[in-house]
């Protein structure tokens, strides 16, 4: 199975990535290779195979419902480019 340019363009929109027209052929070929690799599975009969949700054959440990974190927002906000009134500022996103 190979992807189309439209598939790649759509993926770029969804992933918020911009690729130049020059890069398109290369990206298209590489992504198609990956999809092709996974597509090999389609040749196998998987009727009785239980879908695998995780490669480790283990189950999730649960934590007890306790507050273990303290307020460190001033520390974390040092990494943010813009902060005001303790809010992280981002380009306007109103609907």
């Amino acid at each position: 199975m190979s992807l189309t340019r439209e598939d790649v363009q759509k993926l770029c929109v969804l992933a918020r990535l911009e690729i130049t027209p020059d890069e398109m052929a290369d990206v298209l070929a590489k992504l198609s290779d990956i999809v092709g690799l996974v597509s090999q599975l389609e040749a196998e009969d998987t009727t009785d195979v239980v879908p695998m949700a995780h490669p480790l054959d283990q189950t999730q440990k649960l934590r007890s419902d306790q507050i273990t974190e303290t307020d460190e927002h001033q520390l974390y906000q040092k990494n943010a480019p813009l902060v005001e009134k303790d809010l992280y500022l981002v380009p306007k996103v109103i609907e």
Binding site: E84, L87, L89, V90
Partner: peptide, 15 residues
């Protein structure tokens, strides 16, 4: 939560 008060044309985010 996004807050759209006036932050000089930006939005404020409370997580």
């Amino acid at each position: 939560k996004s807050l759209h008060d006036d932050f000089h044309g930006l939005s404020g985010i409370d997580l």
